[in-house]
Structure formats: structure tokens, C-alpha cells
Amino acid sequence: MDTFVQQIINGLTLGSIYALVALGYTMVYGILGLINFAHGEVVMIGALTALAVIKPLAGAGLPWPLAVLAGVAAAIAACMALGFVIERVAYRPLRNAPRLAPLITAIGVSMVLQQLAMIIWGRNYHSFPQLLPATPRAIGGAQITDLQIMIVAVAILMMAGLALLVNRTRLGRAMRATAENPQIAGLMGVDANHIVSLTFVIGSALAAVAGVMVSANYGIAHYNMGFILGLKAFTAAVLGGIGNLTGAMLGGILLGLIEALGAGYIGDLTGGFLGSDYQDVFAFFVLIVVLIFRPSGLMGEKVSERA
């Protein structure tokens, strides 16, 4: 039983991490209908920037919480700038290009960001400092750290905040209008370019926060960390129905739980035939099954045809 509770906690933490990254994916997709494959790399840049700021500041004797805050702020600022530049340079000229062109560009951007990060931060793995005390709390026989609680909370807060932004504010209405039809939104006085830029900048800020959370949780940062994370988050976003904020959260949590419970129990259930080495297979298998029965994801809109 303790083991089961622990696995649920593991799954929720992992799922919230996926959700944090997936929210950024889904937000950009919701407005632009574009898979920003480079989102994972923005997460990576966020983590490494935060690290680059926190370490020297803390080393210089700045109180720990201040150093962390400065690091997170720097990461957010850097990623916002990066998001703005990426959109401006790589995606905007392709607004009317064939569907696959931005995808290829995104792969190119992803390669460039990775290499730049490697040139700046080197090839080595970096240890990332503990943001909160790592002593675990015991719930029954299971263990949970403060940081894990914080990650789940941040993911939920972010989702709620984004939902409020998109559904309740003027900016959100402009975003939805742009998503619906940029030309007509333009006629209504919405500056579509401005809205798209803002979407990217907000999505990148989310990526920065996600990067700091991920690196703090695992205590590690590396120029190559974004790719797999981005891929998993993308899977989560699609599972939940890409373009849908609640869906991204749900997809993330679901994917996390599937991976944790799959790794934890399938081995015993199949008598050792399938083990934790098939962890990713379970995740993709569930995804495929869900998409066969609900072709636009769990929470996706029924209309799958979007321009």
C-alpha cells in the first residue's frame, strides 16, 4: 500500500513536470496551430540561465531566497527574449508557408539552440542546487519533498492562470479571435502579429519556470536535457487534446501516472515478461489507443480540421 501511494506521488510529480512543459506547447498551438518543437530547448535555456545566475549570486553571499528569485527572474527574462526572437526570425516569415515548413524550421531552431547552449555552458552535466530543503515528509510510508508539492502546485496555478488569461481578459479574447481567424481578427482591430508575439513570449516564460522546476527536482542541468522532455510533453499535450489547456494538464498527469504505475507494476502483472524497459511503450500505447477512439485527444475539440 505504501508502495502504491508512493508510486502515485511519483506519477503526479512526473506528470506535473510534463504538464508544465505541455502548457507552453499547447498554448502556442492553440493560437497558431504550430508545433513549436523548439519549446523543449527553451526549457533547457531557462534552466541553464537560472543556474548561471543563482550560483555566482549565492556564492557572493546573497541570501538564498533572493538568489533563487533573481535566477528565476533572469531565466524568465532570457526565455521571453528568446521566444520573441524565435517567433520573429523563424516562424513569422512562414505564417503562410506549407504546413511542414515551420516544423522543419522548428527542428533547425532546436539544433541551433542546443549547439549554442553547448558552446556557452559546455558539454558537462551541471549539478543544480536544491531550491528548497530536500528532507522528505512522510505520508504514511510514502515520502514527498517540499519541492514536489511545489511543482504540483505551480503546475495547477499556471494552468489556472493561463485559463483566466485566455478566457477572461481582453488579451485572451484577442488571442482567441486570432486563433479563430487572424484576418477577421485584424479587421476587428486586433494586431495579430502583436498577439502572436505575446503568445510566444508568455509560452517561453512558462518554459523558463518549467526548466527551473525540472532541474531543481532532478538536481541536474545539461544542454541536451530539452529534447526528450519536449517530446514527452508534446505527447502529453496531444494525449489531452492539443490546444486545450486543461487537456495539457490532464495529459501530463495521465502520462506521468502511466509511466510510474507501468514501471512499477506491469513487470509483476505479466510475470516478468514485460518490465520497466517497456515504460515508454506503455505511454505510447495508451496514446495510440486514446487517439484511435478519440482522434483529437481527451479534451480536444471535435473539429479536427484547422487552417
Binding site: T3, Q7, L14, I17, Y218, G264, D280
Partner: peptide
């Protein structure tokens, strides 16, 4: 006997199983 991969960072699930 558990497995992970050479790009993974999260081992909580398999470690929990090992712990049991």
C-alpha cells in the same frame, strides 16, 4: 531487475519498486 535508459532523469518509479 529494472531498466531505464541513458537519457532518463526520473527513476522514482523503479526505485520505489526496488524499495518494496
Amino acid at each position: 531487475e529494472e531498466h531505464t535508459d541513458d537519457k532518463a532523469v526520473d527513476f522514482a518509479a523503479i526505485l520505489t519498486k526496488v524499495k518494496s
